[in-house]
Design a protein around this nucleic acid. Structure first.
Length: 415
RNA sequence: GCGAUUGUAGCUCAGUUGGUUAGAGCACCGGUUUGUGGUACCGGUGGUCGGGGGUUCGAGUCCCCUCAAUCGCCCCA
């Protein structure tokens, strides 16, 4: 009880629950591949500057959520809090501008030092895709459509809402920021403490403040859309038209902003009301200046990340079954060796075979039940003498004798 | 980082205004059944009551600290 436990914000994923997580990540991989994104794996830690230089020095992720440490050689290392920075670093390191457009899918653990809650852990998992090297809205449409298809194949088409906004290009955003700061500054003393800080660090975030007082002020705040210049306007329209064309439903949310500095133009979020405060299930946007900020070439990109734990939570415990084995049971100790040999042969033929290690037949059948086995192969002295075994269908209870020569083919229905 | 709630067996929980040896269901192990599972009945293992300190003749129960989880804020997937 007071023995060892996993550290705060981490947890053990046992096979039953992992089956659900795996279904989520495999679905993502499958959809990504159909959209032309193949899996890349980057290290789960990077030099700290990979994140601090790109996420924005004032972002919460950098100021309070990074898991950082120093190596014996004095390198400052950070466990990755998100996936995009690593993919972009890898793009630069490997000279991938030669192979543009680059389309990567990733899956793996991320780390954020924050207060754990349901659907929010210190070590958690994300799947994501990044499309690098395409500056036209076609890329945004494809990326968002892939995200929608992923959620749809998990069965969440009706549980999520796609919220869409445009942050505009650099010029538009700077103009808006100025307008916004001017507006809120007149009411500075009426703003919540949090928003007073946000006014200095990230004024856009005031727009989605949950403080009631702030909400009143936000209602009359200037809207980003008004500040979009012609090019940004056209880009946004093209994205919307593309989504309409593909039948991807969305809701425009002019107050949707991003926490990380590197986003521009398209920002989107798939949200759900079923997870309490952790409503965002898949989110992303366009990051045209990120790679340049990191010291690489000017290279546009767009992508998203999605929280595996949150989606697994939505799926529900036990919503995905573990593979069902066929169990090999020697009727008495005399058939133990034969059973082991047969189990091995069938495994080599591609069957999922379980075998008990002790106990009489009753106990072994009992365990077969608990393992959710679909069939049992009973090996008794009598039938072995005839070169046969008994195959019992554990679903129906029907059983019949099968000659060892025909066994592999007659088991096919249990595969 | 801030605020609130919770913490008794592997799991879900009971445990009166502080009072002897802390209970139940499920799960697990064994038996009824020495070649046939999921049912039923019987029996058994398992707890320093999250941890530490304090008040008291006496603490699972009251107080303080600490750890963890849950909910909300910040922020985010």
């Amino acid at each position: 009880m007071s023995a060892l436990k996993s550290v705060k914000g981490t947890y053990d994923l046992l096979p039953k629950d992992k089956a659900v997580h795996r279904h989520v990540s495999e679905t993502a991989r499958s959809v990504a591949e159909r959209f032309g994104f193949n899996e890349a794996v980057t290290p789960i830690f990077e030099l700290s500057e990979v994140f601090s230089r790109t996420l924005g020095e004032t972002s919460d992720v950098v100021t309070k959520e990074m898991f950082s440490f120093e190596t014996k050689g004095g390198d400052k290392i950070t466990l990755r809090p998100e996936g995009t920075a690593g993919i972009c670093r890898s793009f630069i390191s490997n000279g991938l501008q030669q192979e543009v457009p680059v389309k990567h899918f990733y899956y793996g653990p991320m780390f954020r030092y924050e207060r754990p809650q349901k659907g929010r852990q210190r070590q958690f998992h994300q799947v994501g895709i990044e499309l690098i090297g395409v500056e036209t809205p076609q890329a945004d449409v494809e990326v968002i459509a892939a995200g929608y298809q992923f959620l749809k194949e998990l069965g969440f088409a009706d549980d999520v809402t796609l919220e869409l906004n445009s942050l505009g290009d650099k010029e538009s955003r700077a103009a808006y920021r100025e307008k916004l700061v001017a507006y809120f500054s007149q009411f500075e003393d009426q703003l919540s403490e949090d928003s007073k800080n946000r006014l200095k660090t990230n004024p856009l975030r005031i727009l989605d403040s949950k403080d009631e007082g702030d909400k009143v002020l936000v209602k009359d705040a200037p809207v980003l859309g008004e500040c979009l210049n012609e090019a940004s306007q056209a880009f946004y329209t093209a994205v919307k038209e593309g989504l309409d064309l593909l039948g991807v439903p969305y809701v425009e949310n002019p107050r949707l902003v991003r926490g990380l500095d590197y986003y521009c133009h398209t920002a989107f979020e798939f949200t759900t009301t079923t997870l309490g405060a952790q409503g965002t299930v898949l989110a992303g946007g366009r990051y045209d200046d990120l790679i340049k900020m990191m010291g690489g070439p000017q290279m546009p990109g767009v992508g998203w990340a999605s929280g595996v734990e949150r989606l697994a939570l939505m799926m529900g415990e036990g919503s995905v079954d573990l593979p069902r084995p066929i169990v090999v049971i020697p009727v008495s100790g005399d058939q133990q060796v034969e059973a082991m040999k047969l189990a091995h042969q069938l495994r080599c033929e591609g069957y999922i075979i379980d075998q008990g290690y002790s106990g009489n037949m009753k106990k072994r059948l009992n365990r077969a039940n608990k393992a959710n086995a679909c069939a049992a192969i009973l090996m008794g002295e009598d039938e072995l003498a005839r070169g046969c075994v008994t195959v019992r269908d554990l679903e129906s209870g029907e059983q019949s004798e099968v000659s060892l020569d025909d066994l592999v083919t007659s088991l096919a229905k249990f595969k």
